[in-house]
């Protein structure tokens, strides 16, 4: 058994130590907000916070998440009241929406570290892929969230 703490709740899971955190959360804990996109830490659809750091969990063995605080998209708010969620809605960012859990988690981590990021800082931090090409609106939403926060 491996014990992990996701969104403040402790879970015991019977999985191999090298199973990526993404699949533990999705298939064992049945929390499906975090997505699978590439399996090689390229696209960022699987982004969660591990001890506050935006982490691509499709390559993070669950054993390395033991004893750490794991936060997923499900933890932001139950009513979309988190400033980043509000900004995402105000700028009408999502199209297909599949990458947006990861985008939002990356943005939340950026804003926790850098309250008022410059455009360059946004571009450097936001390397997740969006095939719908919502990049311009993601940028606007981060600026908006930075202004509101």
């Amino acid at each position: 058994m491996i014990s992990i703490t996701v969104n403040g709740t402790s879970h015991d899971v019977d999985v191999p130590a090298d199973m990526p955190l993404l699949w533990v959360v999705r298939d064992e804990l049945h929390m499906t907000g975090t997505k699978f996109g590439c399996g090689v830490a390229q696209c960022g659809a699987c982004t969660m916070h591990v001890d506050g750091v935006a982490t691509r969990t499709c390559v993070l063995p669950v054993s390395q998440a033991v004893g750490k605080q794991i936060r997923t998209i499900e933890s932001l708010s139950t009513d979309n009241s988190h400033p980043v969620q509000r900004a995402w809605i105000a700028e009408q960012v999502p199209q297909c929406g599949y990458c947006q859990s990861g985008q939002i988690m990356a943005a939340v981590a950026l804003l926790q570290k850098t309250k008022k990021p410059t455009d360059d800082e946004i571009t450097q931090a936001m390397t997740n892929i969006c095939r719908c090409g919502t990049y311009g609106r993601i940028k606007s939403a981060i600026r908006r969230a930075a202004g509101e926060a």
């Binding site: 499906t32 907000g33 979309n80 809605i89 009408q92 859990s101």
Partner: peptide, 27 residues
């Protein structure tokens, strides 16, 4: 007018194919 699908797309609750769960399902 706002898109009707925004809410579930900013909190991870909207269901894509990959998210479908059926009782007794394997992978």
């Amino acid at each position: 007018g706002r898109r009707l699908d925004l809410t579930g797309k900013v909190n991870g609750t909207i269901i894509y194919g990959i998210d479908v769960q059926v009782p007794g399902m394997v992978y």
